[in-house]
Computed example of a mutant assay.
Amino acid sequence: MKKEKAISVIVVTLVFMLSIAGCGNVGKHRSPEEWLSLSYSGLAATDQYDFTGSMSIKTDGGLAFKPEVFEGKVVDHQQLTLQTNSQETMHWNPVKVLETLNQSNDEVRIVNGSNDEETVTLLITENAKVSKEKWEQRLRQQLDQLGANMPSKDKPFHQEWMEELARSRSQLDAMLSTMQAATEYELVIDRTKLLPLKMEEKTSFQYTYNKRPFSESRYTTVRFQSFNGALSNTVQQMHKRVTMD
Results as ranks from 00 to 15, higher is better:
L187T: 09
T183H: 00
D190S: 10
R191I: 04
E160I: 01
L176K: 07
M162S: 14
L187M: 13
Q159G: 06
R191T: 05
E186Q: 00
S168L: 15
E160H: 05
K193V: 04
R167M: 01
L195S: 05
E160D: 12
V188N: 12
T178N: 07
T183C: 00
V188Q: 15
L176W: 04
Q159Y: 10
E163M: 00
L176H: 08
P156M: 06
M162Y: 06
E163D: 03
Q180D: 07
R191V: 01
H158P: 04
K155D: 11
S177L: 08
R167E: 04
A181E: 05
S177P: 05
T178P: 07
M175K: 13
M162T: 11
L172G: 07
Q159D: 13
P196I: 04
A174L: 14
I189K: 10
D173I: 05
L187Y: 02
S170F: 02
A182T: 06
L172S: 03
Q159P: 08
R167G: 05
Y185R: 13
I189F: 07
A182Q: 08
L176V: 03
T183S: 01
E184I: 06
T183W: 06
L176I: 02
A181S: 02
T178K: 11
L194T: 11
S168H: 12
A181L: 07
T178F: 11
L176D: 04
K193P: 01
L165D: 10
P156T: 05
A182S: 12
V188L: 15
T178L: 07
D173T: 13
A182P: 04
L176C: 07
S170T: 08
Q159W: 06
P156R: 01
K155W: 10
S177W: 00
T192I: 14
L176M: 05
